[in-house]
Design a protein around this nucleic acid. Structure first.
Lengths: 351, 351
DNA sequence: ATCACTTGTGGGAGCGCTCCCACACTACCT
DNA sequence: AGGTAGTGTGGGAGCGCTCCCACAAGTGAT
């Protein structure tokens, strides 16, 4: 009795109502069983479950979403071009943690790229349509309007990286400051005295914090910071190479380099090689991220490991909590969830 | 007047009805405007569009999905562990093509991994719930039950790679057979006579086809196929290395290697180096995929380029057509869409 | 003037759920 | 006996759309 032309194909998926009829109970009871409500007698539950199995019933997500005003889906938003997503191990590790933590949930994960303006446009539409219950925002840049949009739309969200003061979103971060400190302290303990730093992209909060940590470690050790020992990179190999060239020109006497990422370190290594400097004999090198690159570099690279996978897990935990008590961060006052995970220095032959 | 406790939060999203009231028209008319029906007068359309803009109306996807029985979303299913997804450039190129082709559509793309049994279980649930309008299946293995499941559920789907006889799904493939032929013919034309082949994983159709092409090229050139010149790899670097070691042991006189992928070629190169063979002087090497690895190898690797991005585009085209005329492949008889795109040999210093 | 279309429009019915109120029934106190 | 909980259950109302039927109004042929 399909009244709409487009319906009734595909052999007719069974509905709640049909399951109820089959089990000899009411619609509400079946709904309770499906949703795991405790207020159902064991006998009834068994009868309903049998009917569900016989009919091969699968709930209609659209109907549920409409009635209950939730989608059972969350989005992992990557505000970067896809290229970077695949190039940086950060994202794949993050995805692994997120996926693992989500695997015993009913939640569906969507991956959304928002690198170009056009993609951002689409994303805004998407969020406005409330097609997800929550958002994981990885790699937030300074002045990014996304966090504001999110809290305006009152969509639960968790960002990775440090949170700037004005934002009211929950966040998970690794201790970039401490990680940088430990790298520099390590180099100092190895007797290095002229330690340079190639930064990451400074519009990424984390990179900025690493610079702070670098400065603090030097200051605490009684070294005066020489600005000529700091050069901006951009997380790319080429950026690392050219920054290294520049540093060697300015301070030919440097004996150690702390790079803002492993990829940057790879670029720096190249420049050092070309300049005839041996690693670690002439110049010690330390990277950041402890990615596969670090292990495979020649010589193997000392690097600061971030617990990225754990960060992913933590982000999901926070987000699910946030969704569960449906009160977006903004409206719950100042008390905001912020998790900071420790880093670990992995020592290898390059330092 | 929110009757459900959970509703009416978030400042009340405007509904179709409210837009209709504001524009002084009926519900149906607004729906027609939203969906771009031509049967609306210009004046009315303008009035509705104004109301939409003033109210900031965004259609409720769940309601639409429920009423129209479509989701405006398609899934890109990767039947592989995530690790492989990130490791092989194939997927990122594919994703790029798919994304590009989809960007002027309303369709949402979901990325779903189905590497483990558990993930497959979830996927089956997901598909049974008809949460997507169509599926893109990349990297299908032999005996994979997914294609059958898909046609059973009557979900429009397109697979990448050659289609086995029994499947009724549309497919897009690159010419693996021809690509392999061209690689071998190239090596022959360079005067190589003992050409070995390290295969990909043979449960992947494409890898099998490459073996066929390799054999055919040799046969046509009047060489008798020596099975000792063929060794199975698995698309990994380590697999390529150990296969090469084995080949060198069996046929120390070989003077060329055609590898099933660039990554495999990288492994082979390593083994050749260790054995003291120079590339291309002693042994010529050709890869497959023309990925970034090929360009950066030392020496740069000759490789067969597959138009992966174009494949992604073509898959989307097919799928959207399939969805548009809502008739899944199976029910439309034998005439099935199958697109095969040509490959191109990119010559570099390794051969 | 009549008929036969075509074009534009309004609104009822229905998609398959969830939420919640109402009600029956039991158990245990006063 | 009457009250007061608590427990399990049925089903109405409603979520915000799309589809389609009905109908008004216009257009041209007869």
């Amino acid at each position: 009795m399909a009244s709409h032309g487009a319906r009734g194909r595909s052999g007719g998926r069974p509905t709640l109502e049909e399951v109820a009829a089959r089990a000899g109970v009411g619609r509400g009871t079946v709904s309770r069983v499906i949703n795991g409500s405790p207020r159902v007698s064991d006998a009834t539950r068994a009868a309903v479950e049998a009917a569900v199995a016989e009919l091969g019933y699968v709930p209609n997500t659209a109907a549920r979403a409409l009635a209950a005003n939730r989608t059972d889906a969350i989005a992992l938003v990557v505000p970067e071009p896809e290229t970077r997503f695949f190039a940086e191990p950060y994202f794949s590790d993050m995805l692994k943690g997120v996926g693992a933590e989500l695997s015993d949930t009913e939640m569906q994960l969507l991956l959304i790229f928002a690198g170009s303006d056009r993609e951002r446009q689409r994303l805004a539409q998407y969020l406005a349509a409330h097609r997800v219950d929550g958002v994981l925002l990885v790699s937030v840049h300074a002045d990014d309007p996304l966090p504001d949009l999110l809290s305006q739309l009152e969509i639960p969200a968790v960002i990775s990286g440090p949170r700037s003061a004005r934002e009211s979103l929950a966040s998970v971060d690794s201790d970039n400051y401490g990680g940088a400190r430990s790298a520099v302290e390590h180099l100092l303990s190895r007797g290095r005295r002229h330690i340079a730093h190639i930064t990451g992209r400074l519009d990424v909060y984390g990179a900025q914090r690493r610079v702070d940590g670098y400065r603090a470690a030097l200051r605490d050790a009684g070294h005066d910071a020489d600005e000529r020992l700091i050069e901006a990179g951009d997380f790319t190999e080429e950026g690392g190479r050219s920054a290294m060239v520049e540093l060697l020109r300015r301070r030919p006497d440097l004996d150690a380099v702390f790079a803002g990422s492993d990829v940057t370190a790879a670029g720096a290594r190249q420049a050092l090689r070309e300049a005839g400097r041996r690693i670690p004999d002439d110049v010690a090198l330390v990277g950041y991220d402890d990615s596969a690159i670090a292990r495979h570099m020649e010589p193997p690279l000392t690097s600061v490991r971030q617990p990225i996978e754990e960060m992913g897990r933590a982000m999901i935990d926070l987000l699910l909590t946030e969704i569960a008590d449906r009160r977006p961060a903004a409206s719950r006052g100042l008390e905001r969830h912020q998790v900071v995970l420790a880093t670990e220095l992995v020592e290898r032959a390059s330092s």
